[in-house]
């Protein structure tokens, strides 16, 4: 039965390639090895969200028991979203866990992840820090997410104020990603971020 996984992925792959979403550039799927177990997905940040204009890469691992068990998917592109870990890229999405159904395909899963970017679920968070900001300070959350999209996913909109603050920390010798995480976590208050960064190093 193990080859049902490879056989199905092959079929799905063909179908994705023919789908209108691929034609429209909303999603992409690429094969990473010949055994059909590792693929790379790509989704476009949905319009009218802070992720607009960004391209997000996803790591897709197909288990031997596919399609009876869901594929393992995580974000490879760093993203600021309540349901995605800003550290590991792990995604909190029910259909990737207990709500998986065998008739779901890589295409529908990629579209679901894209939909998750438009409609976050802050009450079932993967990243508690991001979810807190999303709920308590939505404006700042949107700016932060837009800044991350620009920094990591090739998004068009730079946030000048944020870039300047990251640069300040870079000048102090802090790693760029660490600086961005600290600033994002402390609502872009430079002092608190600096304090946290240097206390941790001691």
């Amino acid at each position: 039965m193990a080859n049902i996984a490879a056989k199905r992925i092959k079929r799905e792959f063909k179908e994705v390639m023919k789908s209108e979403e691929v034609a429209g550039g909303a999603i992409k799927l690429e094969l990473l090895d010949n055994s059909w177990t590792e693929l790379q997905g790509e989704i476009a940040g949905p319009p009218d969200t802070p992720y607009e204009g960004g391209t997000f890469l996803l790591e897709i691992k197909v288990p031997e028991t596919y399609p009876f068990n869901p594929p393992k998917i995580r974000f490879m592109t760093k993203i600021w979203h309540p349901n995605v870990s800003s550290v590991t890229g792990a995604i909190c999405l029910d259909i990737l866990k207990d709500q998986w159904a065998a008739a779901l395909t890589l295409r529908t899963v990629l579209l679901s992840i894209q939909a998750l970017l438009s409609a976050a679920e802050p009450n079932d968070p993967q990243d508690a820090v991001v979810a807190k900001q999303y709920k308590e300070n939505p404006t700042l959350f949107a700016l932060t997410a837009r800044h991350w999209t620009h920094a990591y996913a090739g998004g068009p909109a730079a946030i000048r104020d944020f870039d300047a603050k990251v640069q300040r920390l870079l000048d102090m010798g802090v790693d760029e990603h660490q600086a961005r995480v600290a600033l994002s976590t402390y609502d872009w208050e430079l002092e608190r971020a600096t304090e946290q960064l240097f206390n941790r190093e001691e």
Partner: peptide
């Protein structure tokens, strides 16, 4: 007439 699981 394709199976919804194996797509065959």
């Amino acid at each position: 007439l394709e199976c919804n699981i194996c797509l065959d």
